[in-house]
Nucleic acid binder design. Sequence first.
DNA 1: GGCAGATTGTTAAGTCAACGAAGAAACGAA
DNA 2: TTCGTTTCTTCGTTGACTTAACAATCTGCC
Lengths: 417, 417
Amino acid sequence: MSQHASSKAAVLDVIRAAGTISRVGLINATGFTGATISTVVRKLIDEGLVVETGRAESTGGKRRVLLQLNHASRYAVGVHLDHAGITYVLTNLGGAVVARISRPGAGATEPATVVDRMATEVTALMTGVGVDRDRVLGVGLVSPGPLSPTTGMGLTPPAMRKWEDYPLGQALERATGLPVVLDNDATAAALGEHWSGGIGGTAISAALYMGTGIGAGLVINGVTYRGSSGNAGEIGHTCVDANGPDCWCGARGCVEVLAGPTAVVAAARADPALSRAASLTTHSRSVSADFAAVSRAARRGDPSALAILERSARYIAAAARSLANVMDLEVLVLTGPSFAIAGSIYLPIVREELDRAFFSRAAHPVDVRLSRHAATASAIGAAALVLQSELVPLTEGLKLPENLSAAEPAPLPASGT
Amino acid sequence: MSQHASSKAAVLDVIRAAGTISRVGLINATGFTGATISTVVRKLIDEGLVVETGRAESTGGKRRVLLQLNHASRYAVGVHLDHAGITYVLTNLGGAVVARISRPGAGATEPATVVDRMATEVTALMTGVGVDRDRVLGVGLVSPGPLSPTTGMGLTPPAMRKWEDYPLGQALERATGLPVVLDNDATAAALGEHWSGGIGGTAISAALYMGTGIGAGLVINGVTYRGSSGNAGEIGHTCVDANGPDCWCGARGCVEVLAGPTAVVAAARADPALSRAASLTTHSRSVSADFAAVSRAARRGDPSALAILERSARYIAAAARSLANVMDLEVLVLTGPSFAIAGSIYLPIVREELDRAFFSRAAHPVDVRLSRHAATASAIGAAALVLQSELVPLTEGLKLPENLSAAEPAPLPASGT
DNA sequence: GGCAGATTGTTAAGTCAACGAAGAAACGAA
DNA sequence: TTCGTTTCTTCGTTGACTTAACAATCTGCC
């Protein structure tokens, strides 16, 4: 329950967000006193995380010394593990991608084998660009579905039953010799956007993540919001048509069923002309490949493909608006593989919906953007997770309070007042 | 940016949540050491906020001394200001209602006049039960619509234009001589449930508030979540039918239009038999009175009234499920005047929906409850707001970081690394 | 050139929350 | 009565942050 988010973390965060800033700038931005900033900055410079990088114009007196992250001083590895593929990125301290590789997914392989492979590939990633292992802070591993962020219990998505209860974090930690952080991929994507996407200071932002499913990650004042069981942001099962078709989740009219990539592909396949135009001939290809084909057709100008995607976008925009209303968002980023492909079609429709009908639009607009790294957003976010958690020894993270009623032995009848 | 949520606040929170607890229990629950608990508890006892109230059975050695809030040591006033009526409650330290009165609403009266009246009525409330003014911590004032929680800029709901930019907080502070805290009524209701509704420790909970509109308040780890402009929880404009009717907010198929009290009353009026049965004769009565009439008809067994309310409940349940999915809620409380009247009809339907289709139900259920004080929930929450904010001098509340780019004069080209 | 005034940054001393260790007090059981 | 156990308190220390005084650097003006 100990707080102390540590001035160090706050200062680093501001330096990163500002890019270049002086000590006086830090004083204004953080609210700390000059004395504190002075000592904290000296420590950061001693650790090599920050460098002085020039001087500003005078404002009437001594010129300010400008500070910057020392981008090349530390690195982090981000791994996005999915059954379709594994994406690895190596980022520097600023969250910029230094190297990246993609490899086949986990498939039906044994967890232990996959972990060994990942360790090898992480090493290859680092040596490939000549980054020393001891300058790497750790590995962030994200994957779809809920998973416990600390120890590494397991993933429980549709087709990865083997991974349930497998101590993924510990295993990868042993195999790589680096600290490992686990999290959900949509959450990570949101953090990645916050970290490297140029989202300023302490916004309340969300990342709408579309892969084969739809999810959202939430970042509140620079901290990811996970909910009570790590499943927060489950926007795919937002109801956008109470009388709509059934969903496997038990409800009706979920946005995923009405507008997800699977629904888009199904609608396209139902149209023979479009199926031919987009070469959706066989049934063997993956949903993402088919979705990409439909998107290409739409970009070529195929009217029925465009209609299908716009219909999808309108549903997703409605869900996004509901999310923005409930969270009172400032920033919404579209990201993930599917938006990497079709983002240009979705973006204007979501943006229009939020301009027109966001409840608090009188107070402030919602800034809707397309991620610049939509395809690798989760992997980048995984690395950002490491940067955030490993950079500063964050004391500890919220000790769980024990069960109160159990903690107390049977009380006697009161004898005092 | 200074942290230190202060051990005092944490300890008080745990004592309140537990009802009765020993120092050792506090050690386990908060994670602080015995030394810290010892000194903090002594301070709290010195201030009169806590009393020793008995002993527990021995667990092999010295018997634990049990602690309790000194409920009668401090009080707080909660005011729910609405154009239809003003509700006042006086609560003790535990959030229990000691006195309450209801008075006519603000109507079209001048703000200054209303503030004077409120000050008089607050005084009457306190003297009525013989509570001294210096044992009252402050006044919490909540009302529908967004408003800035600190200074007291204004409310901007439909029909209260006069109040815009009126310095409500300062005016009431001067008029009563007590500290004033302002907030949104749905948010306050959520906090009130957290505070007095027996919601244990640090849950993630929401209050679904239905008056004439629909809103939600969010409490995350005991802290209200307000969003970037204080409008968080705006669930009334959640889309539950993307092809539904237009809403004044600019969107279509908002739950408020489809299922809010206004919609319920309109549907009932459209049915001549029901209109007669529920005596919805004139058009002059208020929406809430008509809604109450429909609810009474339903409880008497009128099938069409029941059908209308169940239809409404189903839409609201869908919105509640979307909210629970996105926030990964643990607890959802139905509260507000409309649920005070019709909660017994809505509760089972919302509960069923969340049992059946809440996304993370495998990990944990959502505990759906009906508030025990639905009619006065907001006023109680307003008092809780005071208890929370005024009880412990919370250092300060998050200094806003200034605009970074503006804080820095034009930087010169870098000269360092 | 040189000095006044402004602004930036550092150092030193003090404050406060929380911790660890050791002691004091209360209790049950032998 | 004595012992071991558990509860609670006291004391000295640590670490983060602040206030206050000071040193360093720059502009502008004579």
